[in-house]
């Protein structure tokens, strides 16, 4: 069983799934396809496990697999022809890319946990690129409220990063 039990596989799956998806998302720029690629990568790893193959460093293996598949997905769908169009992730080391994917996964999770109204305002600003005044107008709220909600949302998201830093520097 590639050296791991099915519970261990489940643990790996649950901890790696989101970062891997965000890792793939950098390349594929499509959440559904990213999820499919990651699911497929896990399926193949699972099959290998069942066939008794050993996978050393499961995490690194999964990132490599997802990366290769995401790139081949791109060439298959002909969405990219030129090297210039590759995302800027290319100038990050593999390790840095993994780290970034993990932090993005935490951001995704933090957005998930925002109160719905605050999340809507946040998405209008950052996803749709709306100005605070435009959001205030469309939701018929005061600009103060929007600023307030955005401040709180950004604080929460920033804390997801801080928490990790504190964890790293003060293991106690």
């Amino acid at each position: 069983m590639c050296g791991i039990s099915s519970e261990e596989f489940e643990r790996n799956f649950k901890s790696l799934y989101k970062p891997l998806c965000l890792f793939s998302l950098r390349i594929t720029t499509n959440p559904d396809d990213a999820e499919d690629i990651v699911q497929q990568a896990f399926s193949d790893a699972w099959t290998k496990c069942k066939e008794g193959e050993t996978i050393d460093n499961f995490k690194a293996y999964m990132y490599r697999t997802v990366r290769n598949r995401s790139l081949s997905y791109l060439s298959q769908t002909h969405l990219i022809q030129t090297a210039e169009e590759f995302p800027e992730t290319e100038d990050l080391s593999e390790e840095e890319q993994i780290y970034e994917a993990e932090r993005n996964a935490r951001l995704w999770e933090a957005i998930d946990k925002l109160p719905p109204a605050r999340r809507d305002i946040f998405l209008m600003a950052k996803r749709d690129g709306m100005k605070y005044q435009e959001i205030a107008d469309s939701l018929q709220l005061s600009i103060k409220t929007i600023e307030n909600q955005m401040g709180k949302a950004l604080k929460t998201l920033r804390e997801t990063a801080t928490r990790i830093y504190t964890f790293f520097f003060c293991p106690a």
């Binding site: 799934y17 896990f42 399926s43 699972w46 993005n104 957005i111 950052k126």
Partner: peptide, 28 residues
Amino acid sequence: QRIRFVAKYYRKGAIDADKAWTKFAERE
């Protein structure tokens, strides 16, 4: 940049590890 990147693709309920595992475990 990261916030804009994640927000751009964010969709409620997508990329959920628990849901994905349930799907995976069923299929496999």
